[in-house]
Nucleic acid binder design. Sequence first.
RNA 1: GCGCCCGUAGCCGAGUGGAUAAGGCGUCAGCCUCCGAAGCUGAAGAUCGCUGGUUCGAUUCCAGCCGGGCGCGCCA
Length: 555
Amino acid sequence: MKNTIREIVFNAAKSAFDKGLLPSDEIPQMEIETPKHKAHGDFSTNFAMVSAAIQKMAPKKIAEHLVSSIEASELVEKVEIAGPGFINFFLTNDAWYPVIDDILSKDVAYGSSNFGNKKKVQVQFVSANPTGPLHVGHGRGAAVGDSVGNILSFAGFDVQKEYYINDSGRQIRTLGTSVWVRLQQQDGRDILFPDDCYKGNYIKDIAKAILEKEGPDLLQKEEKHGIEICARFAAAKILEEIKQDLNSFGIEFDQWFSEQSLYDSGRVDKVIADLKSKDLVFEKDGAQWFRTEIFGDEKDRVVVRNNGLTTYFASDIAYHIEKFERGFDTVIDVWGADHHGYIKRIEASVEASGKQKEQFQVILVRLVNLLRGGKPVQMSTRAGEFVTLKNILNEVGKDAARFLFLSRSYDSGLDFDLELAKQKNSDNPVYYVQYVHARITGILLKAQEREIISHIDLKQGEYLELLQEPEEINLIKILSSFTENVEKSAKTLHPHVIFTYLMTLASAFHGYYNKHKVITHDSNLTQARLSLVLCVKKVIRNGLSLLGVSAPERM
RNA sequence: GCGCCCGUAGCCGAGUGGAUAAGGCGUCAGCCUCCGAAGCUGAAGAUCGCUGGUUCGAUUCCAGCCGGGCGCGCCA
């Protein structure tokens, strides 16, 4: 619809120039926007104001000439000049009806577009160490990453979702030691539990599980070997549980990428050697440093320590360069906001490999404050006690959790109240939106029962011109803006744009429902309204699915 | 101290440089013999942290200050 208006403005500008009303045929960067206030029309352009300098003419004068050159159209009811020179377009009701047939025919694809031009994008998220269960913070990151992937894909990007497994020797060895020590303790030996080991109770469970599998001989093994066995077993088991948790959170990754594989294939060594040959890595104090400072970082960073071991950063450089070698145009990482100091470092790696730093983007997700009835839930990392993602899913359910995680911009902190999330009332926005879907399904079934329609999934709108109520036209307008909202969400990488859109649509529907009956004694009008609400149902479903939330037929 | 992020009503918060700053919670007053009340309608509530600057126009961009969060390891 916006593009149609843009065309009308272009043509009018050209015609005004041809007629000699405007001195220049240059068309500046102008906006076609939907005004905040209905009194300002359906669409508005700042053409006259931004043209003032080019045309050397007062904005109002330009607007007058432009408006006088607009060709009459069935879509446009009237055009007004307002304020400092805005040109406001008021469309006829007829202009909006085609939206209904468009939605009915595109169905699950309505809202998708070619905005991304099939550009290859990778979204990497969660990527938690396989050393313990996922917690709330991972949940928010997971919801954000998964939705961003869905939205980009819907907007026409070629998206791959990836999980980076930090399974490098060092961390996994600590995990192995943790299990090994617990094993010894459970066998009655008096061993002090090391401070840098993982303290959670899940370690004890893993110790029991491995003892069951390997038998008591395990305890007699030489320590180094025993730790190794424990490490492998524990990492595999935890990763399996992480996969299950993510699965019940509705998330599937296209690829699980192992950090260890970067070492095994020699990529880490090769990258360091390459950087050294370009003099981007140098030696100081017995360590190898990457000159990240020349790329804008605060200081240079160590990639190989003076004890010969590589840092986490070393494999991260190799990993990000490897991603681009896989052909991605853009690589997006979803991180906890506490890692923001790391961005410059990775940008440096990306630039050093010859890519633009804009091709690497980081979504920083702020922390989640877990509450119960307004009071903070105590989480002691010292004791390894925390509320896991699994606990939350069991308590509040996938849909409520995901919707709340995406309810606001990720660059704000989020209070997640377990009591609130469980409530099935208007305090809980997920039900507000899902209720629309269930409610409409109810109406359609009723209409089918009364034999007004033979099937609840109409393929084409009927008697649309009977939709004359302002609430009806307003609903269609909101429906028609779904695609541009998806694009905006994709462009800004902000899934909460979809959340806000769904709330707006749901609110408009509930208001309409309370004011007007869909099923009336007038069968033509009823069919028209059924066409409309079916479209609302489909768009609600499409929007919810981008957020990974289900659209129930009944609640 | 340096760097990044945030500052919008009592609270939570939306807002591609545009005209009268969404919505929700909470408060107050209403709506079910009628398609699902997990819903709706109305009222009250804001010097958009402060001060300058850029602009025809700033909540939005820039600078400084104030307040909050996070980060500044040869940890991951």
